[in-house]
Design a protein around this nucleic acid. Structure first.
Lengths: 192, 192
DNA sequence: CGCACATATTGACATCGTTCATATTCCGTG
DNA sequence: CACGGAATATGAACGATGTCAATATGTGCG
């Protein structure tokens, strides 16, 4: 009798609420019951839409990945054009965006790339952030802006370094400026 | 009346038990009560030695970090000598050891570098794996084996790339061979 | 021996994820 | 429009968990 039986969009509402909770408190320290209570819904209502608490978190993770992807897309859009300079700016911007996302949304970042979401989320094969990186690198390569023979395995290095530096920054093992060091070193080592 | 009051070394025993539990099931999915039960001890006995469940996990994390450090030390010992070849082998070996540790003990790796253990564990300043990496890089540098101007920020890149690739491998986002790509690319980009 | 301290226990509390039986609402079919 | 089934929500309950307060039990020192 709580005003609105059949919420109509409980699934979406729960994901949104869970998204906020994750952003604020981290994926651990999030309770289904609290989310249900915030939505004026019984604790067990969620189980009509999600099999599991983890299923809710995976949905949140998808939102997080989408946010990261959108952020990277915005960077690409901010540096359009066919010039070498633009290509360089796109590449550097992608790395910066990746790290900036992690710094601004550490809990979301941890969830997206954590054990819970390790599923069909973002593999090298699927679309999203990874292909944007690959495209940016290919662009640099075809422009002859890469050091000779540097292209091989460079996606792994760049993604790995971005991801690792981002992780180490948000855990406090590296200072925020470490992101700049990544860009600078990439410039020095792989570009010309 | 459970046989042995005053366990005598409950703290160490709990850490050891927790270490096994973490290795097997991950830091989440580990319960203090289960650990206590395995040690034939009441659930609240732990609170004489640890303020928190997290305190136990931090202790486990310290063991994990020590294990990583020992592993890296073993690599250094396996490639002694003053030759350039040995210096190269030490550097490559450290990276390989870091990733191998993550692959063989993913749950431990996640705990060590996860939010719970983000404390005085392993900052760039403190001893351990990071200084071993710095020393190896300095060694390469003084030998003139580094590309000109490459030393600046290279610790961040190498640690970041190792850490990121390790993380992405154990979450299934990169194949195990990505570790080799790291070594190869470093060889190609920063060494001569 | 006796006393103080460290250590462990018992019992309880609040919270959590999850399930089951039940109730309510919605919607398409007759 | 009526009705019945499907979708959705509820309530109560279970077992498990982290944690605390009060209590009991060892241990070692005077």
């Amino acid at each position: 009798m709580s005003r609105s039986y059949h919420h109509g969009a409980l699934a979406e509402a729960m994901v949104e609420q869970a998204l906020n909770a994750v952003r604020e408190h981290g994926a651990d320290h999030v309770s289904l019951r609290a989310i249900a209570q915030a939505l004026d819904v019984s604790p067990s209502a969620a189980y009509n839409h999600f099999s599991d608490k983890d299923a809710v978190l995976v949905a949140v993770g998808r939102c997080g990945l989408a946010a990261l992807d959108e952020r990277m897309a915005r960077v690409l859009a901010a540096h359009p054009g066919d010039s070498d300079e633009a290509a360089r700016a796109r590449f550097a911007g992608l790395g910066r965006a990746y790290i900036a996302f992690a710094v601004e949304e550490p809990n979301l970042f941890r969830l997206v790339f954590g054990p819970i979401c390790a599923e069909a989320d973002m593999g090298p094969e699927s679309s999203g952030p990874y292909v944007k990186l690959v495209d940016a690198l290919d662009d640099l390569d075809t422009r002859g802006l890469l050091v000779a023979g540097a292209r091989d395995g460079l996606d792994v290095i760049v993604w790995g370094a971005s991801h690792g530096i981002a992780s180490l920054i948000i855990e406090g093992y590296l200072p925020r400026e470490a992101g700049d060091a990544l860009i600078a070193s990439m410039d020095r080592l792989a570009l010309r």
